[in-house]
Design a protein around this nucleic acid. Structure first.
Lengths: 200, 200, 200, 200
DNA sequence: GATGAATGAGAATTCATTCAT
DNA sequence: CATGAATGAATTCTCATTCAT
């Protein structure tokens, strides 16, 4: 039951942070939403900042965990289109976590500890993508650094698309497949056959 | 001299917002950095929020202006590689504005007015990219919506790469060419020739 | 076993009050130290203040009791040096109670009830000393009030010395004899033979 | 005027601490007494504890300063009865500072920084008394440590007498001379001519 | 215009006490 | 008897904004 209370605080915080942002969410809002007294909050968290750390850690861990699990299942199955699966997985997971990921990135700017958590999260995700790139041998001759940049860039691509799709345009999960195909079809050097990515 | 004071406040605010985030930057920090009294601030801005609006508007206008100008010059010159030029331009502009763009996006979550400014900014950028896509006829048969997603996704790709490259890895502008080529070489459907973006 | 629990609370409280003062000792600290649940505390004491009263009363009773007992033994034995014995006894008793006596005096300032307990304690001690002074006829011609002042002053003298000796300089009981002799040798009108305590 | 405000806070704090103790005095009480808003308090002090530090430091410095000044004047005048003057000076100064000195000693228990200030204060006072003892050659053959104890003991004697006289018995300053003579007449080894402070 | 001290509403945090199990 | 999670009133502290000089 102690865990229940803690979970209930985290759930309310997640909801409210996503709705109003970290700074516009008062501790009093959280406990009101969670249906408990203000003092109870401090039985489970040292401070509002401490709660945020927990929320961020758990949220990103969950996402990263889901991604990693998906990756394993695929490798086991000798997945013939790992990039497509990866994109679909990221989209699925982001679907229910986008605003909170944004909040975390926001608040990170002001709190080095959160910045670290978030940095590690992206590093993990980029690592998984880099693995796919290496196995597919799609970018022969690339340095590690260039593969890093490619991986991070792909994350950014999916994140931005997800934000537009789910948050701005309020689409539900039913068209994730279509979005996946659109993203998969993206080629940065579009329609310019006279010149390739010559320099690399 | 009235304008000087205002500029000086904006400059300090830009610096401090980028360093510590909006909420962790106190009005007192800004005026201290700008070397003036606290009351002076309110001669030039109605409130802290008002300052933020100014900073955001100006910053995004600058970026969008530079992008638009670049686009025109290119069209005039019948640029043979518009996507490459676009990416390089975005990278150049982001190089000196990255942190503040982040802050603006962050704060948007908590302030509808800023969210609007930021939304319009991205819409403008996406519009330009969509134009390029249409002219290049790189994505035949795509719906408008699908072209939108493609455009936004490309912005996200460049933004994330820029963030990693300039902020996290502290690179200077001297390797923008190389980064441009890497991004240009990105193909989301990497190494999977058996299946194209079939469904679209 | 009920008594055991109560004693255990008092013991922990004594220790913690001495270490950190009354206000910096939380009820939660006390029960943690005593190894019991927070609620248990209120089975034995009406409130934190009530505990303090008990601690203070018991502590001062113990001291006063030891002093009184010593006094009787001496009178019975026609003690030839009652002041020396008195000082040694006070030192011995203070040795194990000094910090708590301090705490009691401190807290008294803020709590009239405790102030009373402490006042009565000193009054008892001063009374005993006054008796010695009267029997020894050391201050002929003194009014009762002047004898009172003399008695209280002597208590202060011993208290301060004890504090310095035991608390600040961390001496153990092995040098109580030496300290007794030093205190016994104190003459306020030191080295000034031309003038005595003339006016009295 | 900045100084005025600060002084006014300190004055109110001194008064209220003396009346009700540190913990029973709220910041809101202090500012109400000083006639200003709560926020103003924090322009001048980092916290309530910070205020206390200031009050303690200033108060003890003032007392020690007055004592030191008195000491100098006397030396210059080849004072024939330095101990009497010293006692009278301590009594005079304590007369208006007794309760606050008590408060400081109290709070010191819980705050190492205050404990230090208070310790140094007593060390300074004891040093002055030790000088008198040495010059008067009243305790020949004493070790430094024994002289220390004697000095501290004398301070305790005066303090306790002052407390009884001024605080408990509410005497005013008009009988300071009489009290001085009583204290000066104190001889710890009262009425026991058969035995001196033999062992030293 | 410029100042910067003063404001006070609003937020976070503490902790003695209660009470259902 | 014992527990310890829950309470919420009380308190400290923050900071955007105002205003007299």
């Amino acid at each position: 039951m102690a865990e229940e209370k803690k979970e209930s605080i985290i759930a309310s915080a997640l909801k409210l942070f996503a709705e109003k942002g970290y700074h516009n969410t008062k501790v009093s809002d959280i406990v009101k939403d969670a249906g408990m007294a203000q003092g109870t909050f401090y039985l489970y968290f040292k401070s509002k900042e401490d709660l945020f750390r927990c929320v961020a850690e758990r949220c990103l861990d969950e996402i990263a965990g889901a991604l990693a699990q998906g990756a394993q299942e695929q490798n086991a199955a000798c997945n013939p289109a790992p990039m497509r699966s990866m994109i679909r997985r990221i989209l699925e997971i982001y679907y229910s976590n986008l605003t909170i990921v944004n909040i975390i990135n926001q608040h990170g700017a002001a709190s080095p500890e959160i910045a670290d958590i978030s940095k590690q999260f992206y590093a993990r995700m980029a690592g998984q993508i880099k693995d796919i790139l290496k196995h597919s041998n799609a970018y022969p001759g690339y340095t590690e650094e260039q593969l890093d940049m490619t991986s991070y860039a792909k994350i950014g691509l999916v994140e931005m698309a997800a934000y537009q799709w789910f948050v701005e345009r309020r689409n539900g999960p039913e068209r994730i497949d279509e979005l996946t195909e659109v993203l998969l079809g993206i080629n940065m050097n579009c329609g310019l056959n006279a010149e390739g990515s010559s320099g690399l």
